Amino acid sequence: MRIVVCVKHVPDVQAERALGESGFLVRGDDDVLNELDENAVQEAVNLSGGDGEVIAVSMGPEDAVDGLRRALALGADRAIHICDDRAAGSDVLATARVLAATINRLSEDGSIDLVVTGMAALDGMTATIPSALAAHLDLPALTFAKTAELDGTALRITRTMKVNDEVLEADLPAILSVTDQANEVMYPNFKAIMAAKKKPIDEIDLDDLGLAEELAGVAGSGTKVKAATQRPPREAGEVFNDAGDGGKKLADYILGVMK
């Protein structure tokens, strides 16, 4: 079995985030592998059963290789880094197009049985990459899985939708996205971290994928950032002294804010 797991290198959720003058996210030294993608890597490793090949794929600037090293330490066998300045600023539509082209290229060396993603990237939180990949690759998408299992050539998942659980099944090949409930990430020990440094990471660009530059980056995106302003600092709250009329003061304040 060959499994592709798509991962993303994102700013640490605890760090200050901002958009630059270009409208692109300002990146720094505190960027990390998207936390929800760690569950995706773990699920890919679990489903491979140790007999298949797990290939981590990421599109991003040069430092995105650090996220791929993390994926390799978590158990992926090798990695593909799509690194091309022409892809900068890609939205979900353009990103999915590039990832799909990469998966199609990998399939030339042998069929890809499963594509796994986290349920969302914590920088954008669109949660739409799995569905967009399914559309490009013409594959069924089983999303937001809290459990996933293989039964021969069929993939079965359970997911919670509001208050009810759904059980969905599809034949392979398929797209799978998992939540942080899907598994317990087995954090790598020193041996795994050192072994990851020896695993191959192949760097490719749009030319390698046969993609015209107008299909990626800002040119290939369906959405664009027109303007961005820094969130204003939090102001001190207003204190009401309750002298028996605290409820009325609070109600008046709320009504004033809502006007």
Rank of each mutant, 00 (worst) to 15 (best):
residue 64 A to V: 01
residue 70 R to A: 08
residue 3 I to C: 11
residue 152 G to N: 06
residue 155 L to V: 00
residue 24 F to Y: 11
residue 15 A to N: 09
residue 173 P to S: 08
residue 146 K to L: 10
residue 211 L to D: 02
residue 24 F to R: 14
residue 203 E to K: 14
residue 71 A to N: 04
residue 20 G to P: 13
residue 179 T to V: 09
residue 204 I to Y: 04
residue 94 A to I: 01
residue 111 S to Q: 14
residue 80 I to R: 00
residue 253 Y to K: 03
residue 223 T to E: 00
residue 56 A to K: 05
residue 70 R to Q: 10
residue 257 V to M: 12
residue 47 L to H: 00
residue 96 A to I: 10
residue 125 M to C: 09
residue 130 P to H: 01
residue 198 K to S: 05
residue 156 R to F: 02
residue 76 A to K: 14
residue 150 L to H: 05
residue 82 I to N: 00
residue 188 P to V: 01
residue 11 P to C: 07
residue 144 F to D: 10
residue 8 K to E: 12
residue 256 G to F: 01
residue 108 E to I: 06
residue 165 D to A: 15
residue 11 P to R: 07
residue 167 V to R: 05
residue 218 V to W: 03
residue 70 R to P: 01
residue 249 K to W: 13
residue 63 D to C: 05
residue 26 V to L: 15
residue 93 L to R: 12
residue 28 G to C: 08
residue 118 G to F: 02
residue 120 A to Q: 15
residue 67 G to M: 08
residue 48 S to G: 10
residue 124 G to P: 07
residue 67 G to T: 07
residue 253 Y to V: 01
residue 210 G to W: 04
residue 89 G to F: 10
residue 218 V to K: 12
residue 108 E to D: 12
residue 86 R to I: 08
residue 135 A to I: 04
residue 61 P to C: 04
residue 256 G to P: 03
residue 46 N to E: 10
